[in-house]
Design a protein around this nucleic acid. Structure first.
Lengths: 169, 169
DNA sequence: ATCTGTAATGTAATACTATATCAACCCGCA
DNA sequence: TGCGGGTTGATATAGTATTACATTACAGAT
């Protein structure tokens, strides 16, 4: 059990569910869910945080699945372009999608303190961003929305720490 | 005259206005608006698109103002942290702020076709993003919002092209 | 069963982006 | 005059990503 959303959950179940979903989706769309691609998705799912391409590459290399950058980048590119993973631009890192299969425009909340990344959804054609774009005559195709801040758990422990002066942050 | 917003405007005026605003702001806050920092801001203002740190460095080097990466990165860090410029995460590139002085949470519209970047403002505590964060108990400190798409000019020329079959895209 | 074209992989080299470190300098000020 | 903070110079290196090309695996056609 580790955290997603910002709550705890059954982690191994969420990994196998996501993996199965990806498998199904690839079959449906005639995509090849190869060994490396599958393994990279597994690695991402195993953490609920963003991993750098070279972190992933290190794991792959340790398993004899390829040691050169393109191996990792190609798998990541496949996963990202088919919606099984996302890139967090702010971190130059990658994370498994928490709602694979459906076409969506994700928004991420990145905790500055524990590095946990949580994915949520917005409706792109609604909201201020869309209004601004409409006003400018700009046609939005994709949007990167990444919020940096403090997650509930870290905020609480920070509050607790400041309640106890003498405990250094 | 080049484009900002997505309209044309008096470019040299916008450069000198922004430069003057930065100067004033630095004086007020006891910040040193040094030669390199000023020059980097000028370079950014001169284009209404995002420039990579090494693009800027190349210009500086050509002028004898420093040829090593830290020169550019230090100046950019100063400009970004004081709100005179922003980093476009999606592009790993930097752009002059179009509303310097005021504390703000910018949103960018990046044209995939001509690379023009336009800055607009949103009210962070409003909108879907804030709602999502509130629901999750997440405390947003900063947000990166970058929309990719097609600007009015490029969309029009694209439409014109597709009206004339035989003209290759 | 073999051929063939496309997609995926292996591997090396390199490009691009960013930071760490430490010494030197400048300037305002006690 | 000497101290201290912030800025700059310079070297090295870390971290992220792509190009290029040879090779292999595989699905579909013959």
């Amino acid at each position: 059990m580790t955290a997603t959303g910002f709550e705890t959950h059954d982690h191994s179940a969420c990994i196998s569910t996501a993996l199965a979903a990806a498998e199904t989706c690839c079959t449906e769309h005639r995509l090849q869910f190869t060994k490396v691609r599958r393994r990279v998705l597994e690695i991402l799912l195993h953490e609920h945080r963003a991993l750098g391409a070279y972190d992933i590459l290190a794991v792959l290399a340790g398993e004899g699945l390829g040691a050169q950058p393109p191996v990792a980048y190609r798998a990541l590119e496949f996963l990202v372009s088919n919606g099984f993973a996302h890139k967090i631009e702010k971190l130059n890192a990658y994370i498994a999608c928490s709602l694979p299969g459906q076409d969506h425009s994700p928004v991420f909340m990145i905790c500055r303190s524990c590095q946990t990344v949580v994915e949520a959804q917005t409706v792109l054609p609604a909201g201020q961003l869309a209004q601004v774009a409409r006003d400018a005559g700009f046609d939005i195709e994709r949007a990167v929305i990444e919020a940096e801040g403090t997650c509930p758990a870290c905020r609480n422990s920070k509050d607790a720490a400041s309640d106890a002066p003498g405990t250094k942050a």
